[in-house]
Design a protein around this nucleic acid. Structure first.
Lengths: 322, 322
DNA sequence: GGAGAAATGCTCGTTAGGAGTATAAGTAGA
DNA sequence: TCTACTTATACTCCTAACGAGCATTTCTCC
C-alpha cells in the first residue's frame, strides 16, 4: 500500500473540521476485460492508457457514472462491475498541491464483434503488458531475463539481511527455490520488478543495477499497476464466484469455459477434474444443442444456470491445478 | 451495490474532458476494531457515528491521512489498515447538487487500557448494532422477532414470483429452510432487513408491513451499513490471512486466540480442530511462559510468528465449523 | 480428596481434489 | 476406406484436509 511517494512529513493540525472541507478532482478509471480467442483482453485508449474520466455531478452514482461512459465508448453493455481501489496522487498533473482522487473499477464484458485493430479504443491482450504472467506454456519466454535481473537486484543489496529479505520476497512472488507459482500474486510481482528497477516506469526509483529492462509494454501513469490489481482480483475471484460466465457467450462448451479460465489464470488445468468441478456444482445446464466441432468429438453446448445465484450462496468456479 | 438512490436519469453528454473537472469534497471514514473481553468492539464518536474526517491536501496519502487522525484520536497505533469501499452520496449534507465522496477503511488495533465508558470516542460492542450476528450461544434472542418480520415481508409481496424470490433470499442470508448460516453474509442480511423496513433507518423505503422494528442500535447516516461491510470483510479475511493477531496482545494462549476468532465470526468452533489448524500452519511459537490460569490446567503462552509472513504466501487462519 | 475446567493428544470416517487410465465420437487426410 | 489425430466423457485411485469424538493430563476450588 505504499503507492504514494512519501514526500511530506505527517501533519498534526488536522482536527480540521475547522476550515472548510477542501475539494479535489475525482476520477473514474476502468479496467474492462473481455476474452477472445483464448486471450484475455483489456480495453485501452491509444494503446497504453486505461479509459478514465471525471466523476461528474450529473452522474447518478459512481458505478453508474462509470457504466455510462464506458458503455458509450464501447457500445456494449457491461455485465459485471466491481470497485477495485481508490487512491490519491500528489504527483499527477496540475502542479503544486493539486491532488486527484482516482477510483478504479473492474468490468467484465462479453466477447464482442472485433473492433478494428489500431482503433481507439482498442482491445489488447493483457499479457502484452505482463508477459511473465502467462504460464500456460510453462515458464514464459521472459522468465530468464527476469530471473537474471532479479538476481542482480538481490545481489546488489548492501547488507545481508536486506539481501535475505529480497531473496525471500522473490521466492514467494515468483516461485523460485522450489516454491510454487501463485497466479494471484500479480501485484506483488509487479511491485518487485518496479522496486528492482526492471521496468521502464521505475526509471527514477531504486539504485539502478544496470540490468536491462524486462519485456512487456508500459502504460500511461500508473495504469499498469491498476491493471495488475485488476488481474489479481479477477484471478482470485474466479475461484470462488462464478464470474467467468460474464465473459462467455450465451452458450458454450465446457472446453471453451476451461480455456477462458486458463486464459485468465495463466495456467492450464486438468481437464477431467475441471469438468467434475463444474458438474458437481451444478453451474451449467445442457441446451440440447451440439457444438459444430473444431476438430475432435462434438461437445455439448451448455449455458450458465443463472438460477444458481439464487439457490445458494454459490461457492463458485474453483479451478483445479495444472 | 445499489446504495445510491436513483434520482436522476443517466446523462449522455459526459465525454466531458471538455469542461474543467468538477470538484468534490472527499471524506475518510474509519471502522476501527478491537477485541476485549471476548467481544469485538468498534470505535464510535458520540455512541452512534463512526469517526470520519476530511481528506486534506496536507495528508501524505489517503491511508496516512486516515492513520494520522485516527491515531490522534485514539492515541494508539493501528497495526493494520485496509481500504473497504468508496461511495458517493447525493443526499448527504449541503443541499442541491452537493456531493461527497467517502472512502471507508477497516482498521485493527490491540486491546487497549479501557477508555471511560460514555467518553467520546467510545468503544462499543459491535453486536449492539447487529444483535442477530452473534450466534455463539446458538440462535440469538432477536431471532424470533426477526423471523416474524421477514415472514410478514415475504407474505406482503404482491405477486408469487416476488414472494418466491424474497423467500429464497432470506433462506440464503439467514439460513432458513435447513440452509446453513453463513457468517460472512452480514451485508446481505442488513440489506434485506433494510428492504423489509425492519430497521429504523429504513423508515421511508419499502411498503411498511407494520411489523415492529428489530432490536439493534441504528447509527448516523449509513454508518451502520459501513460497519456491516467491515464485519463481512473481516469475517472473510480471518479465514485466509492471519489478521486476528493484530487484535491480540503480544503473547496469548490458544484459547484466547480461539475466543477472539469466535467473537469476530459470531460462531463457536471445535477446540481440538482449531488447535490442530493453528499448529500445522506454524502460525505461533512458544514463549516458554505459562499463563496463570483462570481455572483449569495452565496453558502455554505463545506469540505470533511474524516470520511466517515472509516464509510463504501465508494461507491464514482457517476456522473449523462449530 | 473430589468436582469442575481447561489443555492436550489421538483416532476415525468422509470428502475434496490431484492425477492417471480407458473409451467414444468426431474430422482431416493418405 | 482406413488411419491418425483431436476432443469429449467416464471411471478409478490415492492422499490430504477436516469435521467429530473420546481420552488423559494438570490445574483450581471447594
Amino acid at each position: 500500500m505504499s503507492r504514494e511517494p512519501s514526500v511530506l512529513p505527517a501533519v498534526q493540525d488536522h482536527a480540521a473540521e475547522a476550515h472548510a472541507a477542501e475539494v479535489l478532482a475525482v476520477n473514474l478509471i476502468a479496467v474492462l476485460v473481455a476474452v477472445s480467442e483464448d486471450q484475455p483482453r483489456v480495453l485501452t485508449i491509444g494503446g497504453s492508457a486505461l479509459p478514465s474520466g471525471p466523476f461528474e455531478l450529473a452522474h447518478r452514482s459512481l458505478q453508474s457514472g462509470l457504466r455510462d461512459w464506458v458503455e458509450q465508448q464501447t457500445h456494449h453493455p457491461i455485465g459485471y462491475v466491481e470497485q477495485l481501489y481508490t487512491f490519491a496522487d500528489r504527483d499527477r498533473g496540475g502542479g503544486e498541491g493539486a491532488r486527484m482522487v482516482s477510483i478504479s473499477y473492474l468490468g467484465l464484458t462479453r466477447e464482442r464483434p472485433a473492433v478494428a485493430v489500431g482503433a481507439t479504443p482498442e482491445w489488447r491482450d493483457w499479457y502484452s503488458f505482463f508477459p511473465w504472467e502467462d504460464r500456460r506454456q510453462g515458464a514464459s519466454a521472459v522468465e530468464p531475463t527476469l530471473k537474471t535481473g532479479l538476481r542482480a537486484w538481490i545481489a546488489s543489496a548492501a547488507d545481508p539481511a536486506l539481501r535475505r529479505e529480497r531473496e525471500q520476497r522473490c521466492a514467494i512472488a515468483f516461485g523460485f527455490d522450489s516454491q510454487v507459482w501463485n497466479e494471484e500474486l500479480v501485484l506483488q510481482r509487479y511491485e518487485l520488478l518496479f522496486e528492482a528497477g526492471l521496468i521502464p516506469e521505475a526509471r527514477h526509483a531504486a539504485p539502478q543495477t544496470g540490468a536491462q529492462t524486462i519485456p512487456g509494454q508500459a502504460m500511461t501513469g500508473d495504469h499498469r499497476r491498476i491493471l495488475a490489481t485488476a488481474m489479481a482480483r479477477l484471478r482470485a475471484k474466479i475461484k470462488y464466484r462464478p464470474v467467468v460466465f460474464e465473459l462467455l457467450p450465451e452458450t458454450f462448451t465446457l472446453l471453451q469455459l476451461q480455456r477462458s479460465v486458463e486464459a485468465l489464470a495463466g495456467l492450464l488445468v486438468h481437464k477431467q477434474n475441471f469438468r467434475r468441478l463444474i458438474e458437481q456444482q451444478n453451474l451449467v445446464e445442457d441446451t440440447g444443442a451440439i457444438a459444430t466441432a473444431t476438430g475432435g468429438r462434438p461437445a455439448k453446448l451448455v449455458r450458465f444456470r443463472r438460477a444458481i445465484q439464487a439457490e445458494r450462496a454459490v461457492a463458485g468456479t474453483k479451478l483445479p491445478r495444472p
